[in-house]
Nucleic acid binder design. Structure first.
Lengths: 189, 189
DNA sequence: TTCATTTCTTAAACCAGATTAAGTTTTTTG
DNA sequence: CAAAAAACTTAATCTGGTTTAAGAAATGAA
């Protein structure tokens, strides 16, 4: 049940059987159907989610009422609104299942406790956040240098399988333009 | 000499005298004059920099030849091109001193060694990267929801002192628009 | 197996911000 | 302190992408 997470952790650090057992009571497996909300705007984000199977998206509603998708998480990624999760403050975001999705969740309190009990996880999460920061640096570079059309072409080239998994309006909002414009780009090809 | 870094670390974890002494030989203090380069495009980024005093910026040159500033680092922030630093690959970025700047630098090799010798630093850097990731989430949210004018007004409100520290063309490129447009916004007020 | 809902497309009018180009002010340096 | 270099401003023109609005296609639920 928790094996996918253990497999992932063991790619970065080596946990003993004993350490794995300490982990178990802190982990909450659950499953969500398409369009279910794991977090809604105004709520405090209690959980950090590890995606076992499926796809989650993080989005907010801008002043004009449009959904803006800022992140997707697929298999083996962690996702949360960290401003809300770390400081237990109300969130501006929604976390929604883009597909039927299985997750392993950990609460903010358990997260802190766990890091004390299993210090090897400090290294694991240090490496996870290092990777997330690196991904953000690349992402921000793209946001600064690509036109809308280039973003789509490039994303399509890098992640052709993923493009098939989510509706176009979600992808458009992630890439930073309107669904109408995405249609226009696609019509050209 | 290394005190500013020890002070910063001790805000997050408590290092013993002994642990501090282990750190010392891994740290390289240096000073750069305005416009000096700490990293240039094409070079492999050897260092992760902690800013003691002054201001660094991370930027790249886009296809049109324009500078795009993706990050600033002031006192008590770490800065590097992590794609290049972590995997020792050539960088697309420049790191340049926006003011006379004192840094404490650590090489990629020493970084890895240090984390082994002083495990408490795993927690320190986990917290640093957690904070960087949180900052990126906020940053990306802003990039998705604000007009150019709102970005400037908002940044000015949040960091009035910083706006005075850097030339306007750097700020314009950080906020994602042209220096000409920044002039236009300022003229309106 | 149809009706309702969600998603996608098309096209015209529009606009925020870029581009271009010239001139002005400020800062740096010899 | 004078000349050169760097930084900033102004204004006209242009454009990539938005907005609005309507209809078509796909998906899902009963």
């Amino acid at each position: 049940m928790h094996q996918p997470l253990f497999n992932h952790i063991n790619k970065f650090v080596t946990l003993s059987e004993g350490e794995q057992e300490i982990l178990v009571p802190f982990l909450q497996s659950s499953s969500f159907k398409k369009k279910a909300f794991l977090l809604e705007q105004g709520q405090t984000c209690r959980m950090n989610y590890f995606v076992v199977k499926g796809c989650l998206r993080l989005y907010f509603i801008d002043v004009k009422g449009a959904e803006q998708t800022t992140q997707f998480a697929i298999e083996n990624w962690w996702i949360s609104d960290f401003s809300s999760f770390l400081f237990q403050q109300p969130s501006d975001f929604f976390i929604q299942a883009a597909e039927i999705t299985e997750v392993i969740a950990i609460t903010n309190q358990d997260y802190e406790k766990l890091l004390e009990k299993v210090p090897k996880l400090e290294k694991y999460f240090r490496l996870i956040f290092q990777k997330l920061h690196q991904a953000s640096q690349i992402r921000i570079k793209y946001l600064y240098s690509q036109t809308a059309e280039e973003s789509y072409t490039n994303f399509n080239k890098l992640f052709p399988a993923f493009v098939q998994r989510v509706p176009q309006y979600m992808l458009a909002s992630y890439l930073g333009f309107t669904p109408e414009f995405l249609s226009k780009i696609r019509a050209k090809k």
